[in-house]
């Protein structure tokens, strides 16, 4: 399979995995392994000082996986920038999944604050992977300010509804010069395959794996679906049967010379 290249770094896997909502660190680690992923997203939270349990970070082998901190919880650009700086201080990693979600119900990304934050963070040296609604104009504006990817959502996060924004993501893929990672809302391996067949460069999955009855087995199913979808995209899909028409109403004039 061809390599995924983000900000000059090569990845063999085109599946990014979110680490939230797992029943245990062990199941999370086993799922990461089964998925074949090389990029795992993590969030930042305050330590519960009355009950400082062990950090989950120990469960993620950072030699195998690139840690991709996100800015979840940020409600505006300023909060996202603060979280980004904290994430870099905590991990030494300048990769960042930028998400700004002012609404507490659907967690839909704020396009204006995201663009503002992206512009500043790119200047501060971050490799920015912004989570966005499937908005082609926003995607181009983010590319213009120097983000490493765009990550349009397929459906509201956690809904598992599949490629509900397909028509807009088609345009984003057609216009983008940076990798397009379809994020959020992909509930089944077939949804991931659909995104990859369309020409998405990668997908990010969290809820669909973490909340499956058997997350490890589902992680492997997504791995296969992403590979199959990418291969189908590269192979060039066959069309529906072509039917020739006998008459030539449009081009007949070419023969009447």
């Amino acid at each position: 399979m061809d390599k995924l290249i983000i900000a000059g770094r090569e990845f063999s896997s085109r599946l990014l995995i979110g680490t939230g909502k797992y029943s245990s660190n062990k199941v999370m680690a086993d799922s990461l392994h089964a998925s074949g992923t090389e990029i795992a997203t993590v969030a930042l939270r305050r330590v519960d000082i009355d009950n400082p349990a062990d950090s989950m970070l120990a469960a993620i082998d950072q030699k195998k996986y690139l840690l991709l901190p996100n800015t979840s919880g940020a409600r505006d650009a300023q909060e996202a920038i603060r979280l980004a700086r904290l994430a870099r201080a905590a991990s030494g990693i300048n990769w960042l999944k930028l998400e700004v979600t002012p609404d507490p119900y659907y967690l839909l990304p704020d396009p204006i604050e995201t663009l503002k934050a992206a512009e500043i963070l790119v200047k501060e040296g971050f490799i920015v992977l912004p989570y966005i609604n499937a908005d082609p104009v926003l995607a181009k504006k983010l590319e213009d300010v120097g983000t490493a990817t765009v990550m349009p959502l397929a459906a509201p996060i956690g809904t598992n509804r599949g490629m509900t924004t397909r028509a807009a993501i088609e345009i984003i893929i057609a216009q983008s010069n940076i990798p397009v990672v379809v994020d959020a809302g992909l509930g089944l391996p077939s949804h991931a395959a659909e995104a990859m067949e369309m020409g998405a460069d990668a997908v990010l999955i969290n809820t669909a794996i973490a909340t499956a009855a058997d997350p490890v087995m589902m992680a492997e199913a997504f791995k296969k679906a992403v590979e199959a979808g990418r291969a189908a995209y590269l192979a060039g899909p066959a069309g529906v049967k072509f039917k020739a028409s006998a008459s030539s109403p449009l081009t007949g004039f070419l023969r009447n010379e």
Binding site: G20, V42, S72
Partner: peptide, 10 residues
């Protein structure tokens, strides 16, 4: 003082 650490997230 703010003490922050990584947790699982998507």
């Amino acid at each position: 003082v703010e003490l922050i650490r990584f947790v699982g997230g998507g």
